[in-house]
Every structure is written in structure tokens, then in C-alpha cells.
């Protein structure tokens, strides 16, 4: 059985999710006696493709074209579907990143395949892949199976751990996919980067601030703590709605769902809608002056105190320990 891993890259660099997806593919391949193929789509990607060998991929297919420098939902969907048909792939894993979430449904229609989206665990039982996915913003979990012969799964970023890379180079094969102008019916013209800041959706550590910070001018101390940790800055909806912070920082049911290793919530009460977006973080720290704030019910470590005193003290300690 062949398992295809879509290894996402941007600007000629693999995203962390690429290694997570490839590792997950390798794990289920082990249980299904299958073989993992990876596919990389873009422009000037030949030099990075071999890296995937270190994660146990035997063969990496690359599809290169100058028009694939930036993402196109229509072109990428066609390429992935073509590769699947050509190779006779039965299971396809993609990241549940903004690219993977966008392209996977289209691939599923092209292949008459069911898609289980945003999975947080994959298990093989009696030769069948069973996926676990959070529903109702993580307040429930469902186990699902895909009933079609070809099956797609997208994997939530930061949940599946990538194995430590070995130094085996994979065999890289170039694939030609015939792309017409019409295959670029939807295309990205440019990317506007948000001034080099880390995105909560990808960060391994997040420091989030809420209304307890009293005003936008006090987010400097959140940024400083985040800076000392190499973390992204997040926010509750209350402060986003108040215009203190941009909405791409909002964590929660109507913001981003995150699963970092460490989530530090400062001056955030912990409303269910906020918890919905971050409760699957590996470790949660809360700083809040109200000992009864609901955030403490899910925090691993808490400090009941005034953020204005506690946060600078944490920053100072972090700098000591990390030598920055």
C-alpha cells in the first residue's frame, strides 16, 4: 500500500509540518506494511527534497514550475490528484495548515475520496486507519473512519511529533504535470508578510495577553517576555475587539486554534471560547490576579498576582536561564 505525504514548503524551505506529516506517514506505513512517498510542489525545490530521506521517505517526487513559486489551489489540487492516480496511492496525508486545509477538499473531490480534517491522532486497527479529531472547538473528540478506497487526512500542526532526522538522502524523482493556464484559475499574486512576527498558529511558545493588561500600551511587557522566549504574541478576543491587538493574534473559538508546547496566558479570564482555542497546549501557565479565574482550571502552573509585577519578573528569570 502506498501512502503519500504532502510536504509543504514555502520559499524553498520546508515547513515544520512537512516533517510532522512525513513522520506520521512513516508511522502508519509501518503498521500497514506500506511505503511512503512524499510530494513537494513549488519552484526551485530540488535541493531540499532529499532531506525527507532523513525521516524515512524512500522516494520524493518533486513537481517544479516557475508558476508554482506561489500557491494556487487549483494547480496544487491537480498536481496532487495526478500524482496519487499515477502512483496508485491509497492514503494521503497533508498538514491542516492554511495551504493543506485549502487544497485537501479539492483533491478529495477529484479522487472521490473522503477527507478527515484536522486530525490529532491516527491509529491503525485491523488494517483500518482510525483518526481522532477535535470537534466543538476541542470540547469533544470524535473517532472517524474514511469509507472510500482512497482516503485523505489533514493533520493539525504541532500535534504530531517529527522524528529526529537521520542523514539518509531520499531518491528524488521529478514529475511532469501538464499545467494549462486554466489550472491557475485561482492564483496568489503576492504575499504580504506581517512584519516578520511569529504567527501563533506555528509557534512553539505563545504569550497571550487579555483585558487584564488594561490598555494596548501595556503589551510591551508581553512582547518582551515573548521576545525572551522566542515566542509569538497572542490575544484574547476582548483585546482584539477593543482594537488593542490585530485579529490574526486572536486565540480561541473564533480565532486561531493553537497547540504549542507552552502557552502563557496573562490577564485572561479563561472564557470557554478562549479555552477552546488553546486547551490542547502541552503546558499552560496562567498569570491572573483573581484566584477564581477559570483559566486556572486548565493551567499546569499559575501565579495569582498582578501581571504588572509578575510578567517583568518572569522575563528577567527567563533571560537568566536562557542567557539572553
Amino acid at each position: 500500500m502506498k501512502i503519500l505525504a504532502f510536504a509543504e514548503q514555502r520559499n524553498g524551505q520546508f515547513k515544520k509540518t512537512a516533517f510532522e506529516v512525513v513522520t506520521a506517514a512513516k508511522t502508519i506505513a509501518g503498521q500497514l506494511n506500506g511505503e511512503v512517498i512524499a510530494v513537494v510542489v513549488g519552484n526551485n525545490i530540488a535541493s531540499i527534497a532529499g532531506q525527507l530521506g532523513g525521516y524515512g521517505v524512500a522516494k520524493v517526487l518533486i513537481v517544479e514550475d516557475t508558476r508554482l513559486e506561489l500557491y494556487s489551489t487549483t494547480a496544487f489540487a491537480k498536481i496532487i490528484a495526478d500524482v496519487v492516480k499515477e502512483e496508485g496511492v491509497e492514503i494521503i496525508l497533508l498538514p491542516a495548515s492554511e495551504m493543506g486545509k485549502d487544497v485537501a477538499p479539492r483533491v478529495s473531490v477529484k479522487l472521490d475520496a473522503g477527507l478527515a480534517a484536522g486530525c490529532t491522532a491516527l491509529k491503525v486497527e485491523n488494517g483500518i486507519v482510525k483518526a481522532t479529531r477535535p470537534v466543538y472547538a476541542g470540547k469533544g473528540l470524535v473517532d472517524v473512519i474514511v469509507k472510500t478506497p482512497v482516503k485523505l487526512f489533514t493533520l493539525r500542526p504541532n500535534v504530531f511529533t517529527a522524528s529526529a532526522p537521520g542523514n539518509i538522502e531520499a531518491v528524488v524523482e521529478r514529475r511532469q504535470v501538464n499545467l494549462e493556464e486554466t489550472d491557475f484559475a485561482v492564483s496568489v499574486k503576492e504575499i504580504k508578510a506581517s512584519s516578520g512576527k511569529k504567527d501563533v498558529a506555528e509557534a512553539d511558545i505563545i504569550v497571550s495577553g487579555g483585558r487584564g493588561l488594561k490598555g494596548p500600551e501595556h503589551f510591551g511587557m508581553i512582547e518582551e517576555l515573548a521576545g525572551s522566549l522566542g515566542a509569538a504574541v497572542g490575544a484574547s478576543r476582548a483585546v482584539v475587539d477593543a482594537g488593542w491587538r490585530p485579529h490574526d493574534e486572536q486565540v480561541g473559538q473564533t480565532g486561531k486554534t493553537v497547540s504549542p508546547s507552552l502557552y502563557i496566558a496573562v490577564g485572561i479570564s479563561g472564557a470557554v471560547q478562549h479555552l477552546a482555542g488553546m486547551s490542547s497546549s502541552k503546558y499552560i501557565v496562567a498569570v491572573n490576579k483573581d484566584k477564581d479565574a477559570p483559566i486556572f482550571t486548565i493551567a499546569d502552573y499559575g501565579i495569582v498576582g498582578d501581571a504588572f509585577e509578575v510578567v517583568p519578573a518572569i522575563t528577567a528569570e527567563v533571560k537568566k536561564i536562557l542567557g539572553k
Partner: peptide, 12 residues
């Protein structure tokens, strides 16, 4: 459209 760390400007 929002992507990780920025926006993609999409034409169609």
C-alpha cells in the same frame, strides 16, 4: 486570505 505569518493576495 490569512496564512501563517501574513496574507496571500489572491486573484481570480
Amino acid at each position: 486570505r490569512e496564512i501563517e505569518g501574513g496574507h496571500e493576495v489572491v486573484v481570480s
